[in-house]
Amino acid sequence: MKSKECVNCGSTHFHKVEQGWKCDYCGTVYLKPQKGSSPQQSQNPDTYSKKRPRKVIIAISFVILLIIGSVIFILSNTTSYEPIDTQPANSQSKGAFPGEWTSEIYDSIKVATKHYDADSEKYSFEGGASYEELEKLVGPPDRVTSWEKEKYGMPPKSTATWDQTKDGEYANGSVTITYDKQTKMITDKSRY
């Protein structure tokens, strides 16, 4: 054999085996050339068997992490609202409320429960009614005040106020609803 160099590791040290020559360092086998062909390189079966399980384990780990991440994302973005259960409005309760508001609608609004996470120093809410559903029932508010940034661990919020009648005159009372800007969950309500 002429001075050859292993294509895998660059070694020049070989020993003779039954099929041809084997690299002393990486174990690559070079088959004896047949007439009219160039030397062939054989893949070491030990190298192949070591690489394949590693790739399979990495692929399975990736799939498992992808599934876990998807489940966490879905659960974190799922917001459950309490329905606004309204009874038919009676004319006696309508006098102290603006616009389409009634005492039944106001009383049926469920305010979210506030939770404080000491590790992240942030508040979260759950179980409140949906502001979007409320707005469909009573119409758009007369005024909205928004806070765009998180403050003292509280998420960005908006306060909607209804204080006018359908005719645009000021009503005898007003209703103020505070809601989380991201989830649109009602976090507070008040009536004057």
Rank of each mutant, 00 (worst) to 15 (best):
P39N: 08
P39H: 06
Q40C: 08
Q41W: 08
Q41C: 13
Q41A: 14
Q41K: 15
Q41P: 01
S42A: 15
Q43D: 11
Q43P: 01
T47W: 04
T47Y: 03
S49I: 06
S49E: 10
K50M: 12
R54T: 12
K55V: 14
K55C: 14
K55Y: 15
I57D: 05
I57F: 13
I58D: 04
I58E: 07
I58H: 05
A59P: 02
A59E: 04
A59W: 09
I60L: 14
S61K: 09
S61T: 13
F62W: 08
V63K: 01
L65H: 06
L66I: 06
I67F: 13
I67P: 03
I68Y: 02
S70C: 06
S70A: 10
I72C: 06
F73G: 02
F73L: 04
I74Y: 12
L75E: 07
N77T: 12
T78L: 07
S80F: 15
S80V: 15
S80P: 07
E82C: 08
D85H: 04
D85V: 10
T86H: 01
Q87E: 15
Q87H: 08
Q87F: 07
P88V: 06
A89G: 09
N90Y: 02
N90L: 09
N90P: 00
Q92R: 08
Q92T: 07
S93P: 00
F97S: 04
P98N: 02
G99N: 12
G99I: 08
W101K: 00
T102E: 03
S103A: 13
S103E: 10
S103Y: 06
E104C: 14
E104T: 15
I105N: 00
Y106W: 03
Y106R: 01
S108V: 06
I109T: 01
I109F: 01
V111C: 10
H115Y: 15
Y116V: 05
D117S: 11
D117C: 06
A118T: 06
A118V: 08
A118M: 09
A118L: 08
S120L: 09
S120R: 07
S120H: 05
K122R: 14
S124D: 11
S124W: 04
F125G: 07
F125D: 05
F125H: 06
E126T: 13
G127V: 14
G127A: 11
G127E: 11
G128D: 02
G128A: 10
A129M: 12
S130R: 09
Y131R: 03
E132Q: 03
E133K: 03
E133N: 03
L134I: 10
L134Q: 13
K136N: 14
K136T: 12
L137Q: 05
V138M: 05
V138G: 03
G139I: 13
P140T: 12
P141E: 02
P141I: 08
P141Y: 04
D142R: 04
D142K: 02
V144E: 00
V144R: 00
T145G: 01
T145W: 07
T145S: 00
S146H: 00
